[in-house]
């Protein structure tokens, strides 16, 4: 009877770990899109403090990899534990593994309880390496996936990229809100959000420069006799030097 109860708990934990693994996969995909969009900005436009952008995203990617690695290790150990329980080996082999999983079991129970609450609950959340906070799981399982669908199209111009940057900022900030202080993903997410904000400002400036250039041409046609001096020529030259054509992006498999 005791073995059956243990096996059932292991099964539930297995399901929970599978979900976490899958959601880390979604997060990785979101990061992939964010990275390619930020790279597009950093390689084509003049970006001050350029090095901070890849550094923030690499830190995020590294943390995800480390956490996912821990999650995969749990799965492996869980298989080992299940094997021991089924083959009814010596209790001395099972006990250390049960101890190893004690915090994870507790976290699993907490997550179930938190998910049942009507309001957001951060006080009960337990920070366990390799796992995601309950609210983050809810976000990645719902809106996170919807956001992922938004990034499947290739951006065609700076306005497209601007919209994507707004999307990235949305999911980064929404995910950050679900994070518990001290979770390994908290600071990488915060840094990535700042880097994305920086990229978005640069894309906005690019769009504004293009609009301003067109408007200045209109103004020259309207007030030609009043403005033909240094300021106008200087601004036209300045804006022309800032404006950069949108690079042609080829996705893998596209011609």
């Amino acid at each position: 009877m005791k073995h059956e109860a243990l096996l059932e708990a292991c099964e539930q934990l297995q399901i929970s770990l599978d979900v976490v693994e899958r959601y880390y996969g979604y997060l990785n995909e979101l990061i992939f899109h964010l990275e390619s969009d930020c790279e597009l900005v950093a390689t084509n436009l003049q970006v001050p403090n350029q090095e901070t952008i890849p550094a923030a995203i690499t830190s995020m990617r590294g943390t995800i990899q480390r956490e996912l690695g821990t999650c995969l290790e749990y799965q492996l150990r869980l298989k080992q534990l299940k094997g021991y329980i089924i083959s009814e080996v010596d209790a001395n082999k099972i006990e250390p593994l049960l101890l190893y999983f004690s915090r994870l079991f507790a976290s699993y129970e907490d997550t179930l309880w938190i998910c049942e609450q009507s309001q957001q609950e951060f006080h009960t959340e337990r920070i366990v390496h390799g796992m995601l906070p309950s609210m983050s799981l809810q976000f990645l399982g719902g809106e996170g996936q919807l956001m992922l669908a938004k990034f499947t199209r290739t951006p065609k111009n700076w306005r497209d990229l601007h919209q994507r940057m707004i999307g990235h900022l949305h999911w980064l900030n929404a995910l950050l809100e679900t994070m518990v202080d001290g979770h390994p993903l908290f600071y990488p997410l915060m840094l990535s959000s700042q880097a994305t904000n920086h990229c978005q400002t640069i894309v906005t400036t690019q769009i504004k420069a293009r609009t301003a250039l067109l408007r200045l041409e209109d103004v020259r046609n309207q007030l030609g006799h009043q403005i033909s001096g240094r300021v106008f020529s200087l601004e036209i030259l300045q804006l022309q030097s800032e404006v950069c054509p949108f690079p042609i992006v080829h996705k893998e498999g596209e011609e």
């Binding site: 504004k208 609009t211 408007r215 403005i227 240094r230 106008f232 300045q238 804006l239 800032e242």
Partner: peptide
Amino acid sequence: DGIESLLLLQSIEESALPQET
């Protein structure tokens, strides 16, 4: 130069211009 700058700012929405401009 000041008058010309004012004319430009009067003709174009300030928010539509890049910060540096």
